[in-house]
Design a protein around this nucleic acid. Structure first.
Length: 876
RNA sequence: GGGCGCUUAGCUCAGUUGGUUUAGAGCGUCUGCCUUACAAGCAGAGGGUCGGGGGUUCGACUCCCUCAGCGCCCACCA
């Protein structure tokens, strides 16, 4: 079989992904094995794959593939999220392009459009995930709004309502005037804004001297909603205002001056305008002081009739206009530049408006009590653990969750209003009617009931994900939920720790009485190499699929993982994908070398046997290190360990040690050992680079149809007793080889020119002569009592070796080299001896530490003696 | 305003309870090689005193204090 000199990912990837799917290798069903379950953080159903997904899905796939190869029953459940606000906004925009307004449509018509859009774009991202190599059980693909998940959501809502945990009430909520819906506190992002602080004059009512109070505000457009002015009762400079009434500028309304210690005397003039309808704190003051509340905004952020002025104009236009009008009316004292934080909608980015409205809420204290302990006591482990603090802080300051959204795309709230007021909550219309009849009499008809128009927050469905995916809500205790729950690892970004992670923990304990997952791996944010967030505007966000086209899926996966320590932000650089691609090529070419060998029945040379034993020891050692990295979720470190094992140890050392001369055969013992080692290496690599490893594994032996490296167990033994000694010995051989190569490089001596290596006084590497000769291009290794003329010397441990280079010797260079090393050693020795001369060190330090220092001292002294001798000879 | 985290070679990062030859890796850099597996490669080399200062200790990159810079999260100062 002829293989190209370069690995071609495109055809290999398609071939094996289809093969895996066709042979059901991703599918899982409960059996006697230990389960390993991962639920995908469901991407937006209409979204497309970006670098954040690429990172996240790669990590999940690595964990899942690793578990599968360990013999666990791995189940990775894919799915998508209906992303209520985001998707509804997209549909609204799309309709607007066609000149259709949402308000012109019925709920049913609108939902038809939304489903069309979902079907058109839904699933694109799932197809893209296949290109990455994601080994999801596609037969389990779910959607947060499919029938099973929807029914689960409704059942949970009804259950929580009956438990008294869900209530309906009028509260100050975060209103998104663009999406025209309420938001939860978590959906509000505070952004710094360079704005202005306006100082307005509030004339004192009936004051003969025409005195006025000055109020500082960032929002002059809300004065139409003012129903009081507030001062701190302890504020000496404002005592004169006590009991007075002041006139709201332009509006002309007289409002009382109230007193409350809430007011900061230092801010502005110490006078605060109070607009109970449009500020959370003012609302609090209004409640406390029994103030009138005037809602001056419409749902879309324009001024309402109640404002009296600027009716119908947008709030920000009004701000500009009112500034002008106030100035012209002589009611503007001054305007200052001011930086403040403005709460904005996470989805639409527009500033939110605090608004009093009727919404549904979930009481959260109960859930916080449920969800805090398991994380704090590590029953659920966070990686990195620092997020435990963040988590605790949020739960200890939990507020009720506003779960209703004034949207149509989502799960409709299962509450039906009765003709005479009040409502019933039920899982379906029939049940609702029955409950309604119990309240209002049996002649009540379904048409008399009106279902709540609102939908539920998207996260009210995704918080059930680990349970609802296995039908654990609707069929508690079924075989699947019992087997797969709790899931093993959750891989997600820290940005949704409150939105999703915390709430899944809550729902998990509420409905399963157990944690939803054992480990949470928080990834970092993918940034560009300059540390900037990836964004469309900057154009610094590469398209993952295009990267896959250029570097191969394995190359991109590796590129991601090379820069992805847990919890740190990822500084992504395309060059890393190149490195990944190059590595694929390296693996590919190693295989080409090995598969090209002819085998004969000759006896195994001693050097080959040594190489084989050594590499097997290294393999065991590194496999153990890799396992340790995985156990700590240090995926990048695991990858780097395998990378170095393959490239440095296997390719550069092992293969060169056993490689037969051109055209020569290799003995069968070495050959089969090499194939076995290759097989082991492919297993270690497979989670990171699934495609190329499958391709090569299939080439490595005659495989039956349906076989796959994916499910072929990895069987590298634990490190054995003699391994460490074997490895240490070979390290010395490598040092000697490098020593000779250094001399060659310095003197420009070709590898083709055989050299003689002298071991001075003793040769601890005598057993390895064959390997030394082969690796360093030596004619011979000789034992001498004193090194000859024209030799360049170096130390291996405390033994001196010398390369005969005859006339090429440059005494000055040799002297300089020896002097530099001598200087270093003397400095080192001085440090060691200083320590040993310190009585308290010798007394207090542990015995083995002192012994080690003594060993260092002895070695250094021996080396120094050798160097001095060398120098003396050179200077002769 | 609180809380958390970071600052180690040109870049990105390791450095596990303070002690394993006066700090390691990958990439990049420099030098020499197209040596029939691989130039997407091979061999060799150089490069940091661990952000600044102080302290604890026989001994600190590792613990404490402090200063500086950076980042994240939370919070109702108009």
């Amino acid at each position: 079989m002829e293989l190209q000199t370069k690995y071609n990912p495109a055809e290999v990837e398609t071939k094996w992904y289809e093969y895996w799917e066709r042979n059901g290798l991703f599918a899982s069903k409960p059996d006697g094995r230990e389960p390993y379950t991962v639920v995908i953080p469901p991407p937006n159903v209409t979204g497309i794959l970006h670098m954040g997904h690429m990172l996240n899905e790669t990590i999940q796939d690595i964990l899942v593939r690793r578990a599968r190869m360990e013999g666990k029953n791995a189940c990775w459940v894919p799915g998508t999220d209906h992303a209520s606000i985001a998707t509804e906004a997209k549909v609204v925009n799309r309709l607007a392009e066609r000149g259709i307004k949402k308000t012109d449509l019925t709920r049913e018509e609108f939902l038809k459009h939304a489903w069309d859009w979902t079907e058109e774009h839904g699933g694109i991202i799932l197809k893209q995930l296949r290109r990455v190599g994601a080994s999801c059980d596609w037969s389990r693909t779910a959607f947060t709004m499919d029938d099973e998940r929807s029914r689960s959501v409704i059942k949970v809502f009804v259950d929580l309502y009956r438990k008294g945990l869900i209530y309906r009430g009028v509260r100050m909520v975060n209103w998104d005037p663009k999406a025209k819906t309420a938001l939860s506190d978590e959906e509000v992002i505070y952004m710094e804004e360079h704005s202005k602080l306006y100082y307005l004059r509030y004339m004192v009512e009936g004051d003969a001297e025409g005195r006025y109070a000055v109020v500082a505000t960032t929002r002059p457009e809300t004065i139409m909603g003012d129903t009081a002015m507030c001062i701190n009762p302890n504020d000496p400079k404002n005592q004169w205002l006590k009991g007075k009434r002041v006139i709201v500028p332009l509006v002309g309304r007289a409002v009382p001056v109230i007193e409350d210690e809430y007011v900061d005397m230092e801010f502005g003039t110490g006078c605060l305008k109070v607009t109970p309808a449009h500020d959370v704190n003012d609302y609090m003051l209004g409640e406390k002081h029994n103030l009138q509340s005037i809602d001056i905004f419409n749902d879309d952020g324009t001024l309402s009739e109640a404002a009296g002025l600027y009716v119908g104009k947008d709030r920000f236009d009004v701000r500009r206009e009112i500034e002008k009008d106030l100035t012209e009316a002589g009611l503007m004292e001054k305007v200052e530049d001011y930086t403040n934080k403005v709460g904005c909608s996470e989805r639409t980015n527009v500033p939110i408006e605090p608004k009093l409205s009727m919404q549904w809420f979930l009481k959260m204290q109960h859930f916080a009590d449920l969800a805090l302990p398991p994380v704090m006591n590590d029953e659920i482990r966070f990686h990195p653990a620092k997020y435990k603090n963040t988590y605790r802080h949020w739960l200890e300051n939990i507020k009720d969750w506003c779960i209703s959204r004034q949207l149509w795309w989502g799960h409709r709230i299962p509450a039906w209003y009765l003709p005479q007021g009040g409502f019933v909550v039920a899982e379906n219309e029939a049940e609702a009617l029955q409950l309604a009849r119990e309240k209002c009499g049996s002649d009540l008809q379904l048409s008399d009931l009106r279902q709540d128009e609102d939908a539920l927050d998207t996260w009210f469905s995704s918080w059930l994900w680990p349970v609802s995916l296995f039908k654990g809500i609707k069929q508690p205790g079924n075989e699947e939920i019992k087997y797969y729950y709790p899931t093993s690892d959750l891989v997600t970004g820290p940005d949704i720790i409150f939105f999703w992670v915390a709430r899944m923990i809550m729902a998990g304990y509420e409905y399963m009485g157990d944690k939803p997952f054992r480990n949470v791996y928080f990834t970092g944010i993918v940034r560009d190499k300059l540390g900037r967030k990836m964004s469309k505007q900057l154009g610094n966000s590469p398209d993952p699929l295009e990267l896959i086209d250029r570097f191969g899926a394995d190359g991109v996966r590796m590129g991601m993982m090379l820069c992805a320590p847990a919890g740190n932000d990822i500084l992504f650089d395309e060059a890393l994908c190149e490195q990944g691609r190059n590595f694929c090529n390296k693996v590919w070419n190693c295989f080409r070398l090995v598969q090209g060998w002819q085998v004969d029945e000759s006896e195994q040379p001693a050097g080959n046997a040594q190489a084989v034993r050594w590499f097997q020891a290294r393999l065991r050692q590194v496999a153990a290190e890799v396992a340790d990295h995985y156990s700590k979720y240090r995926i990048s470190d695991a990858l780097m360990a395998v990378y170095k094992l393959f490239w440095d140890e296997f390719s550069s050392w092992y293969l060169e040690m056993v490689k037969p001369a051109y055209g020569q055969p290799i003995d069968s013992a070495t050959y089969s050992a090499t194939l076995a080692a290759f097989d082991d290496l492919l297993h270690l690599l497979h989670p990171f680079m699934p495609f190329i490893t499958e391709e090569l594994w299939q080439h490595l032996a005659d495989r039956a149809g349906g076989e796959s490296i994916m499910v072929s167990p990895q069987c590298i033994a634990a490190p054995a007793d003699g391994d460490a000694a074997l490895i240490t010995a070979m390290e010395l051989v490598k040092q000697a080889v490098s020593g000779v190569r250094s001399v060659r490089a310095a003197k420009n001596i070709s590898l083709r020119e055989p050299l003689v290596l002298e071991a001075v006084a003793s040769n601890p590497l005598a057993d390895y002569t064959e390997l030394l000769k082969k690796m360093a291009g030596l004619a011979n290794v000789t034992l001498v009592s004193a090194k000859g003329e024209g030799t360049s010397a170096f130390l291996v441990g405390t033994t001196e070796y010398a390369v005969e280079i005859g006339a090429l010797i440059d005494t000055d260079t040799e002297i300089a080299k020896a002097e530099a090393e001598l200087k270093h050693l003397e400095g080192f020795l001085a440090g060691v001896e200083k320590k040993l001369a310190n009585e308290r060190f010798v007394q207090n330090a542990p015995e083995q530490v002192v012994a080690l220092e003594r060993k260092k001292q002895a070695d250094a002294i021996a080396k120094i003696a050798l160097l001095r001798q060398t120098l003396a000879e050179l200077r002769k």
